[in-house]
Design a protein around this nucleic acid. Structure first.
Ligand SMILES: [Mn+2]
Ligand SMILES: [Mn+2]
Ligand SMILES: [Zn+2]
Ligand SMILES: [Zn+2]
Lengths: 153, 153
DNA sequence: ATCACAAATGAGAATAATTCTCATTAAAGC
DNA sequence: GCTTTAATGAGAATTATTCTCATTTGTGAT
């Protein structure tokens, strides 16, 4: 049983953060981190499991859930919910912005965000150290506005 | 079988919206709407079922899920996720703002929000008709900053 | 390099959450 | 009141998540 060396230029600083917090650096954890670093967007636990297994075949489902919980606690990832499809995970650095149509579920992503400046004010007001945010606007998309407005879907 | 008249001063305009969209006004729907109107915050499907049954005893679980889906489509309610506790539902008018601690999960609610003004710009930029938003900041709360920062929980 | 030990893991069982099925009921329009 | 058809409730079925526990494996100390 020599093997299982994932040959990854893995983001060293995340490893440091894990180690600093007293957690062991294990192949499944490296795999999950790598998957989320790489893809970064909207992967659910099942998809993360599958992609992690591509890197470390023995990875188990429970471990993926445990790792996601851990990484969430450490503020490295964050669950994000689009539609009613259960949680997906994204990197918890930076910001994430959605325009969500209540009627059809279409999602538009956008970048610029006034919330960035709000962060500072909130830090002093509430004493939080803010590391990321999520801003979602809900409404009706252009396509749904033209189609008969009283009929859902 | 005469009965089951829920004696509610139920918000007439929501009834209109349901009817206008071609849906029937039924006791379970009235009950669910009433529950969410009344409480407004952070109720999960189970809690909504229980409170709805207090208004209309026969209300079934599946109907609650179906009604929440419908009301979400109509933009009347919206799922909101705090921590890993699964969805809860709030009214989808107005805005909702959270400060969330990545470490302990504490949530601080706040009001003032620069996002309100962003809405207008986004409406013209993307053609969305925006009805509500959710803005969540993630970070570390004051309590967790003082306690040993490297240890989770 | 070997060792000791607690932390971490994986398999599968157990549980919880959500959706589906289908026979029955009851709103809405006439 | 009658008809039509959407909506409902009970429970089964399915999915998602968590738990259990025997085994493995990082890690820090020899
Ligand atoms: Mn996105
Ligand atoms: Mn809230
Ligand atoms: Zn739409
Ligand atoms: Zn905290």
């Amino acid at each position: 049983m020599r093997n299982h060396a994932i040959i990854l230029p893995m983001s060293t600083d995340l490893i440091q953060r894990l180690r600093a917090a007293g957690y062991k650096i294990t192949p499944p954890r490296l795999a999950v981190i790598e998957v989320i670093q790489r893809e970064g967007e909207h992967l659910n636990p099942q998809e993360i499991l599958e992609q992690a297994q591509a890197l470390h075949a023995q990875t188990g489902r429970a471990t993926v859930y445990r790792t996601l919980e851990l990484l969430t606690q450490l503020g490295i990832v964050r669950p994000i919910y689009v539609g009613d499809n259960g949680p997906t995970y994204i990197r918890a650095d930076g910001a994430h912005h959605h325009l969500v149509c209540s009627r059809c579920g279409r999602i538009v992503e956008f970048d610029a965000c006034a919330a960035d400046s709000m962060g500072c004010e909130l830090e002093s007001r509430f004493g939080f150290h803010i590391t990321s945010h999520l801003l979602e606007f809900y409404g009706i998309c252009p396509q749904c506005q033209t189609s008969d407005a009283s009929q859902s879907q």
